[in-house]
Amino acid sequence: MEIVNFAHGEFLMLAMYVAFFAWALGHLDPLLALPLAVLALAALGWATYHGLIRWVLGGPMLAQIFATFGLAVFLRAGAQFLWGVDFRVVQDPWLGGRVALGPVFVGLPQLAASVAALVAFLGLWRFLARSETGVALQATAQDRQAAALMGVDTDRMYALGWALGAGCVGAAGALLAMYFYVFPDVGGTFALLAYVTVALGGFGNVPATLAAGVVVGLVEVFAGLLLAPAIKYAVVFLLYLAIVLWRPQGLFGRW
């Protein structure tokens, strides 16, 4: 869609708050709150497109960057204003503890989160590759004008793209809330890694992002375990830089 959402981290933060408040006020486990978070965030993505992105889409690149960046600052400050600066944690979610996979211990919430992420990925992939709407969406992303000429309602596709993207963040946020703390600034921690992952795989290529995500995760853990924990992110970013120098479009990117 050729627009980067710099408020992606803040969307994640909002999804985590949805899961947290569903637990704190409605006694809903984050697993049950997941559909709620997906719907709420999809609605937010849709509204963001219609309220903001549509108006800057034709504008210069800088206007687009500032619009989503401004949205990020607004959401972060708004969250601090409404819910304060305290760190909040969902206590005793259904999934807790760990499972032994051979000699390795894996946290159960993390395992569930990765399984759910895989399911979401397969769903998204099938939708994009197989369904007519998915193909129309891809066409819009590749060339808006050509897609419009073929009779695709690109405005709707953009809105759908935003709703889908935000909905996925909604799922991620609800899963993450099972084991990570929530506070207004939490998005920034993940957003940078997310951009690096997407850029590493290649913008617009969903399976490549999955592969890149696994690479980033492995590099992070092994750099921390075998080298020094202080430089684990340095290794991740170094790898990213090396790959981007070699292939500016990312590992599997087409353009």
């Binding site: 921690t189 993940f190 890694l193 992070e220 853990v221 921390g224 375990l225 924990p229 684990k232």
Partner: peptide
Amino acid sequence: DIQYRARATSLQSEVQR
């Protein structure tokens, strides 16, 4: 003796060590 990256998204490797 571990110096770790502040505000990490995961501390798995630190705790493993």
